[in-house]
Amino acid sequence: MPKLPVYNMSGEQVDEMELSDRVFAASVRPDLMHDVVLMYLAGQRRGTHKVKGRSEVSGGGRKPWRQKGTGRARQGSIRAPQWKGGGVVFGPKPRDYHYRLPKKVRRLALYSALSTKVGEGKVVLLDQLSVPNIKTKHMVTLLQKFDLNRVLVVDAEREEDVMLSARNLQGVKYVGANGVNVYDLLHYDHVVLTKDAVLKVQEVFA
């Protein structure tokens, strides 16, 4: 089992914690992480893109010239796709890009992402995470103690005061344990976990 030091908010080591092998020391599967990241990004697409087809553009109700006798190619409408201002052929329409991979694949990818961060030494454990009041400087001070910039902060449950103190910081994201995902774990350089968050992740995802 991997064992990591546990720090308080002053940056002092106060304990050590053993992590689950299944969640934090799993074999790394880059292929599964790639698939899950693609699924996540597909789910973020709004899918509201739209172009007008031949039946939707204005005009073109009259046949531009008679069928025969002019020497020109036959045309039925000036809004056919080959005309300037005509409809678009096979253009994008509003659609839902969301899809879901099997639960087992998503779990294995999450284990891989967490294990990667632990293996790279980019996980910081805190005994607890709290702020006396809603001030961004409290989070700035905490991150400076550990020399962290781009960081994902994970707590067992999202605390309103901590969330409001962290939301204005560029490169910092604060989530509850249930909101941990592969994309965020790979996107941010470091991960800060509370002890309760570790227990919650191991309980929920293992």
Rank of each mutant, 00 (worst) to 15 (best):
V201I: 15
A156P: 00
Q67F: 08
V131Y: 02
P132W: 12
T116M: 08
E157F: 11
K122Q: 10
D96H: 10
H187N: 15
N178G: 14
G60E: 00
Q82G: 12
Q67K: 12
R29Y: 13
L152T: 00
S130C: 08
M139N: 04
P94I: 10
K50D: 06
T48I: 14
G76I: 07
K173H: 09
P102V: 09
H190S: 14
V105N: 01
G179P: 01
S10P: 09
L41I: 11
V123M: 02
V153C: 02
E120K: 15
H187M: 13
R100A: 11
L110I: 08
E12V: 14
V51P: 04
E160S: 14
V162A: 05
R95L: 15
L185V: 04
S55Q: 11
G43C: 06
Y188C: 07
K50N: 07
G91D: 11
Y183E: 03
D161L: 14
V154W: 00
R158S: 10
W65S: 13
K117P: 01
N133P: 04
K93C: 11
L32N: 00
R29E: 13
V182R: 00
N8C: 08
A25D: 08
A206Y: 15
D127L: 06
G61A: 05
E56V: 06
E18I: 11
A177F: 03
R54Q: 09
V192Q: 01
K145S: 14
R95Y: 15
K104Y: 06
L114M: 13
V37T: 06
M163I: 11
T48W: 11
M9Y: 02
G87Q: 04
K3E: 11
S130G: 06
S55F: 06
Y174I: 02
A26C: 08
P81D: 06
H98R: 15
N181A: 07
L186V: 00
V140N: 03
D35W: 07
E159C: 03
R45L: 10
G11T: 13
V6N: 03
V172C: 14
G87P: 04
V118Y: 04
Y188Q: 05
L110T: 01
D161T: 15
Y40E: 03
D21T: 13
V28K: 12
T70N: 05
A113F: 01
G86I: 00
D147L: 15
Q13G: 15
A197L: 01
A25L: 11
L164N: 07
A206P: 13
R29C: 11
G71S: 07
R72A: 07
P102N: 10
V154M: 03
L110Y: 03
V57A: 05
D35M: 13
N178L: 12
V175D: 00
